[in-house]
């Protein structure tokens, strides 16, 4: 079975921020909990775009603070851009 959006987001976050997947949960704050700085945050947005084949407005994406909000933002973008694979609501 294909990974859900949530699983994929965790994998991308883990890979980009060098944090174990088990430590990443929807409430994790990218900056406070996962150690993202401005450089890592910009890379993370690019990695999400690449992983999900979507375009994200960089300002809106960088305003997302937590993993849970990122999942919501990505699912919304996927839906708007006609990409399949969003997690069932």
């Amino acid at each position: 079975m294909a990974d859900s959006v949530t699983d994929k987001v965790k994998k991308v976050v883990s890979r980009q921020l060098k944090v174990e997947e088990s430590l990443i949960n929807p409430d994790s704050d990218f900056v406070k909990d996962l150690g993202a700085d401005s450089l890592k945050s910009v890379e993370l947005v690019a990695a999400f775009e690449e992983e999900f084949d979507i375009e994200m407005d960089e300002e809106a994406a960088l305003n997302v603070r937590t993993v849970g909000k990122a999942i919501e933002h990505i699912e919304k973008s996927m839906k708007e851009q006609g990409k399949s694979g969003a997690d069932p609501q």
Binding site: L39, V42, E43, A46
Partner: peptide, 16 residues
């Protein structure tokens, strides 16, 4: 753009 790790990235947006 931001050019990092040999990749062109969008950066942090026009306002920033």
């Amino acid at each position: 753009c931001w050019f990092m790790n040999n990749k062109i990235l969008k950066g942090y947006g026009f306002r920033m």
